[in-house]
Amino acid sequence: MIPTFQIILAFIGSLGFSILFNIKGRKIWYAALGGMVAWMIYLLGGLWLSSEMTQYFVSAIIVTFYSELCARIEKTPATTFLTAAIIPLVPGRALYYTMSYAINNRIVEFADYGSYTVSIAVAIAAGIMVASSLFRIFFALRSYEYRHH
C-alpha cells in the first residue's frame, strides 16, 4: 500500500480513539497527529534500521517525547496524548495471527508469531520507558537548577 495513505489512516485511527477516550477540544488534534507521527517514524525507520523491533522502539520513543512535550504545552497529563497516539503501533495484526495459528494447531507458526507479538509489545514498552525516564531526569535536573540558582 502507498505509505502516505497508510499514514493518513493512522491519523484517522488515532483520531477515532481520542474521541473514544473522550479527549476534548484541540487536544484531539494533538493526539491524532501523534498517531500519524508514530506511523511516519515507523515507516521512515524502515529505510535505515535493519530490524522491525528497532523501528517500533524508536517510534515509541519519539511518540512519548511528542506526548510529553504536548503535555507541557497543554498542561495536562501525558497519558492524554500517549494513549491515542500509540494506537497505530499496537500489534493487533500480530496478535490475531498468533491466535489463528494456535486455533489451527500450527504450532511452529504459533510459536514464531507469538514471540513476534511479545517482542513488539516489549519494544514499544521499552521505548516508552526510555523516553519517559529521560524526560523525568531532564525535568528533575531543571527544577534542581531552578532551586539552586
Binding site: S18, L20, F21, N22, I23, K24, K27, K75, T76, P77, T79, T80, T83
Partner: peptide, 12 residues
C-alpha cells in the same frame, strides 16, 4: 471507564 478529559479536569 477511560475518560481522559475527566482526568485532565481532575488534574487541574
Amino acid at each position: 471507564a477511560t475518560d481522559l478529559d475527566k482526568l485532565d479536569r481532575l488534574n487541574n
